[in-house]
Amino acid sequence: MAAAFGAVGGRWKLTILYWLAHGELHFAGLTRRVAPISHKVLTQQLRELQADGLVQRLPTGAVPAPVIYRLTPYGETLLPLIESVRLWGEGHLRRGAGPVARVCAETVSPRH
């Protein structure tokens, strides 16, 4: 459990992986989807996900060209876990989740 939580635990990593599961994204696209994450925290989380071999960073040209992020094949092995967590969260909200989950649900609009 410790190794799993080290790789994907925390407030943002599963959300970042969820959106990258829908396709590669530029940093700005990730920022919009994972809001209200700060640029600094998103950068830190992406670097950690890269270090664990879950996310690939693809520069599109010379600096300051946009950078694209996508799941690696190893990162794609997390898709069943991510979907399970998403489904559990939906069920938790339907069940009448506690105040923390309700606040999260109110601040996140569905973007599929």
Score class of each variant (00 low, 15 high):
Gly6Arg: 06
Val8Leu: 05
Gly9Asn: 03
Lys13Cys: 06
Lys13Thr: 07
Ile16Thr: 00
Ile16Leu: 12
Trp19Arg: 13
Leu20Ala: 00
Leu25Ala: 14
Leu25Met: 14
His26Val: 14
Ala28Asp: 03
Leu30Tyr: 04
Leu30Ala: 00
Arg33Leu: 12
His39Asp: 13
Leu46Pro: 00
Leu46Tyr: 02
Glu48Ser: 00
Leu49Asn: 00
Gln50Tyr: 13
Gln50Gly: 04
Ala51Arg: 10
Ala51Val: 03
Ala51Ile: 03
Gly53Asn: 01
Val55Met: 10
Gln56Gly: 02
Gln56Met: 01
Arg57Trp: 13
Gly61Ser: 13
Gly61Phe: 12
Pro64Asn: 11
Ala65Leu: 11
Pro66Asp: 13
Tyr69Cys: 01
Tyr69Gly: 01
Arg70Asp: 05
Leu71Arg: 07
Pro73Val: 12
Gly75Lys: 08
Gly75His: 10
Thr77His: 03
Thr77Ala: 11
Thr77Cys: 06
Ile82Asp: 08
Val85Trp: 15
Trp88Leu: 03
Gly89Asn: 12
Gly91Ile: 05
Arg95Ala: 10
Arg95Met: 14
Arg95Asp: 14
Ala97Thr: 05
Ala101Glu: 10
Ala101Gln: 06
Val103Met: 09
Ala105Met: 04
Ala105Lys: 00
Ala105Ser: 02
Glu106Thr: 04
Val108Asn: 04
Pro110Gly: 07
Pro110Cys: 15
Pro110Tyr: 11
